[in-house]
Simulated assay, not measured.
Amino acid sequence: MTGSPRIPVIDLEPWRSGSPEQRAEVARRVDAALGQAGFLLVTGHGVSREERAAVRAAARAFFELPPEVKRRYAVSVGGRGWLGPGAEANGYSEGTATPPDLKESWTIGADRPIGDPEIDAFWFQPNVWPTAEVPALRAIVERYTARMREVADGLLELLAAALGQRPGFFTDHTRHPTHTLNINRYPALGQVGEPQPGQFRIGPHTDFGTVTLLDREQGRGGLQVYVDPADGGAGWEDAPYDPEALTVNIGDLMARWTGDRWRSGRHRVLPPAAEAPDEELISLVYFYECDPHTRVVPAPGAGPVAYEPVDSSAYLRAKLDAITVG
């Protein structure tokens, strides 16, 4: 599938090296897309398919370990390590009651402390690695995460232009940011059994931070995006797919920063499909946030909603607590 008018595929190369007119056109298209579904696909990001495949292969080697081995690395939501089946229900974050999500995850995050014990203890925890079992995982994932941060900061400069702001409007707040990479494994139907009513691989929700960069595999039990019928959408729609592209969506903090000029993209991942019982998917989900305790307040004149200022760390922590099962 290719993009749509509401969720277009946008080539970043003209933004990086094009004429002023080409750059302005890219910014205009980004502004239009984020005002509808909060999603777009980007090519020209510079991260090869081989790099993404290497992360997926190393993670699969971990996920295929026996459960008793993976449990040595078990953590709760917000921790660094293995988040086992049944630990999360993302629908809780929007008040939608769903059974736990049908996935498991390997999670890492920003781990360079800033010297404030209160902040470092949660936001900059040390990452944990299954070095004995999957020695290749650490180097591959750390390289990929560094690449994602470069892409994310570049996107934030583009978003600043799309919002009519100076280039550093957002990146001034990503000098020592929090960020997380979730490598999500969505097991096959034969492994998890028949889903419960209302159960998803990931339940309906919006992301919590600024931008999310997703590398995904296409499948029958794949990503759907909510496009409001008032904007000409059909409600839940299958997300367009391009194997060269990263799927990008904005989260709640970015929507607040723009006074809802841009939508925090509501989405879900369908449960495994009966017609594809052996389908197993792995997604690489990079959540980019901002410096701890950033004061997020709508840009003057950006959008229609005059949100009160919010502390980014308090907001994110509350959302993480909300999706924790049990």
Rank of each mutant, 00 (worst) to 15 (best):
P167W: 03
P167F: 00
G168P: 08
G168S: 15
F169T: 09
F169G: 01
F169C: 12
F170P: 00
F170R: 00
D172T: 09
D172Q: 15
D172A: 14
D172N: 06
D172V: 04
D172S: 12
H173T: 07
H173K: 12
H173Q: 13
R175D: 03
R175G: 12
H176C: 04
H176D: 13
H176I: 06
P177D: 11
P177W: 02
P177R: 03
P177E: 07
T178A: 14
H179L: 04
H179M: 03
T180G: 05
T180D: 03
L181N: 02
L181R: 08
L181W: 00
L181A: 03
N182E: 12
I183A: 02
N184R: 06
N184S: 11
N184L: 14
N184P: 03
N184I: 08
R185T: 05
Y186P: 06
Y186N: 08
P187I: 10
P187E: 10
P187T: 11
A188M: 12
A188F: 05
A188W: 11
A188S: 14
A188I: 12
L189H: 10
L189C: 12
L189T: 10
L189R: 10
G190T: 13
Q191H: 14
V192C: 06
V192W: 00
G193A: 08
G193E: 10
G193R: 02
E194G: 01
P195E: 01
P195F: 05
P195A: 01
P195K: 01
Q196G: 13
Q196A: 15
P197V: 09
G198N: 06
G198S: 07
Q199F: 08
F200L: 07
F200I: 09
F200C: 06
I202H: 03
I202W: 02
G203N: 01
G203K: 01
H205P: 05
H205A: 07
H205G: 01
H205N: 04
T206I: 13
D207G: 01
D207R: 01
F208L: 09
F208Q: 09
G209C: 07
G209M: 06
V211D: 02
T212N: 12
T212C: 11
L213G: 00
L214F: 07
L214G: 10
D215R: 00
D215I: 02
D215A: 10
R216G: 13
E217F: 04
E217C: 03
E217M: 12
Q218F: 09
Q218I: 05
Q218Y: 09
G219R: 01
G219K: 08
G219N: 09
G219M: 05
G222H: 00
L223K: 05
L223Y: 04
Q224I: 00
Q224T: 08
V227T: 15
V227Y: 08
V227K: 06
P229K: 05
A230H: 02
A230P: 11
A230V: 10
A230D: 14
